[in-house]
Amino acid sequence: MVDWTAYNAARAELGSGFVRILGYFREDGVKSVAAIEAAMRAGQAAALVIPAHTLKGEARQFGAEPLAMLAETIEVIARDCVERQDTPEQALEDVTKLRPLFEETLALLEREASPLVTTRRPVAPGVGGFGRRAVPSGQ
């Protein structure tokens, strides 16, 4: 689902701005997916093109190739429909796959980007942790 080599290259290139840029990907992606779904419901091929194109490019930046390829498929169908002055019904199956793939991909990217990924440790029983009360021994 994610090309981790491309992801790590983007992370190295973006440095300290990586998490911020990933946040923009989340915001833009949510907007793009919503715009694609709205355009599909309205049968407006032209309105599919820009959000699909945007999502494609941003997904590729993070190594999310399956998401990028699905967005590209939607973009190509939409551009063809615009040229033929047709409605985008043939993109419906791809559009219905888009949101779940976006959400699953984003969860992977964000989990990997979390500074807690390598430091998460289970709290031993009886030991206090954030939001937990220490249990005195013998209880």
Rank of each mutant, 00 (worst) to 15 (best):
R11M: 11
A12I: 10
L14H: 08
G15I: 11
S16V: 10
F18T: 06
V19Q: 11
V19R: 13
R20A: 12
R20H: 11
R20I: 07
R20V: 14
I21V: 15
Y24A: 12
R26A: 08
R26M: 00
E27S: 15
E27K: 13
K31S: 14
S32N: 14
S32E: 07
V33Y: 06
V33R: 01
A34G: 10
A34F: 06
A35R: 07
A35N: 09
I36R: 03
M40N: 06
R41A: 14
R41L: 13
G43H: 09
A45R: 05
A45S: 12
A46N: 10
A47M: 05
L48C: 02
L48T: 03
I50T: 11
P51Y: 04
A52T: 04
A52V: 02
A52D: 02
A52E: 02
K56G: 04
K56W: 07
G57F: 01
G57Y: 05
R60Q: 10
F62H: 03
G63L: 02
A64Q: 01
E65A: 15
E65K: 11
E65P: 00
L67F: 01
A68S: 13
A68D: 01
M69E: 14
M69D: 15
L70F: 02
L70I: 04
A71R: 00
I74Q: 00
I74R: 00
I74P: 02
I74M: 04
E75L: 00
E75G: 03
A78M: 04
A78T: 02
R79P: 03
R79W: 04
V82F: 00
R84F: 09
R84P: 06
Q85I: 02
Q85V: 00
D86N: 12
P88L: 06
Q90N: 05
A91T: 00
A91I: 05
L92T: 14
V95A: 05
V95F: 01
L98C: 06
P100A: 08
L101N: 03
F102V: 07
E104K: 13
E104F: 09
E104S: 15
L106I: 06
A107I: 00
A107P: 04
L109K: 08
L109N: 09
E112Y: 11
S114L: 08
P115G: 08
L116F: 14
L116W: 10
L116R: 11
T118L: 11
R120E: 12
R120H: 08
R120C: 10
R121T: 13
R121P: 03
P122E: 10
V123N: 08
V123D: 05
A124E: 14
A124Y: 06
G128C: 03
G128T: 02
R133A: 14
R133F: 12
A134H: 10
A134P: 10
A134K: 13
V135M: 14
